[in-house]
C-alpha cells in the first residue's frame, strides 16, 4: 500500500463520513462544520488528482468564503437564544430507498463501463501556468463573462438582502 493509496482511502473516508454527518445531523451547526470537513477531504482529492491550484482555491473559496456564508445564514435565520438549532426531516423512507437504488445503479454502471484511459499517466506538473494561459486564450470570453456574473451576483445579493 503506497502513500498515495493510503491518502486516497483516508480522504475518501473523511469525505463520505463527514458528508453523511452533514445530511443526517439534526443540528444545523454540526452539519455546517461537517461540511467544512467534507470540503477539506475534497480538497485533498484535488491534490491527489494533481490539481494543486484548484485544491488551494477549494480551501479558500469554500472553507473561507462559502462555508462562512452558510454559518452566517444559519445564525441569522435561527433564534440564537435557543440552545439547539434543530431542523426537521421528511419523506426519509422513500428518499432513502430511491436514492439508495440510484447510487447502486450509478456505481454499477460506473463499474461496468470501460472508461477510455490514457496508457501512461504524466507526472503532474505545476498547473498554474497552464490554467492561466487557457483562461487568457481559449476561455477569455467566458472568463470575462464570469467576472461580470460575479459582479451582478454581488450587487444582486446585496440588494436582495437589504430589502
Amino acid at each position: 500500500m503506497t502513500y498515495y493509496t493510503f491518502a486516497f482511502y483516508a480522504f475518501a473516508a473523511i469525505i463520505l463520513l463527514s458528508a453523511y454527518a452533514v445530511v443526517t445531523s439534526k443540528n444545523v451547526i454540526y452539519s455546517a462544520f461537517s461540511l467544512m470537513l467534507t470540503f477539506f477531504g475534497v480538497a485533498g482529492f484535488y491534490a491527489l488528482l494533481g490539481a494543486d491550484f484548484i485544491a488551494i482555491v477549494q480551501l479558500i473559496v469554500y472553507v473561507g468564503g462559502i462555508l462562512t456564508l452558510m454559518l452566517f445564514g444559519v445564525m441569522l435565520t435561527n433564534k440564537i437564544t435557543e440552545t439547539e438549532i434543530k431542523t426537521g426531516v421528511f419523506q426519509v423512507l422513500p428518499a432513502s430507498i430511491i436514492i439508495g437504488m440510484f447510487s447502486g445503479v450509478l456505481i454499477a454502471s460506473i463499474s461496468n463501463n470501460r472508461w477510455t484511459v490514457a496508457e501512461k499517466l504524466n507526472n503532474p506538473q505545476n498547473s498554474l501556468v497552464g490554467i492561466g494561459s487557457i483562461l487568457m486564450n481559449e476561455y477569455i470570453l467566458i472568463f470575462e463573462l464570469l467576472g461580470v456574473l460575479l459582479l451582478i451576483a454581488l450587487i444582486g445579493a446585496a440588494s436582495i438582502a437589504r430589502k
Partner: peptide, 12 residues
C-alpha cells in the same frame, strides 16, 4: 465511486 456516493448524499 466516491464522487457518486458524495452525489447521493447531497441528493439525500
Amino acid at each position: 465511486i466516491v464522487s457518486s456516493l458524495l452525489f447521493s448524499f447531497g441528493l439525500y
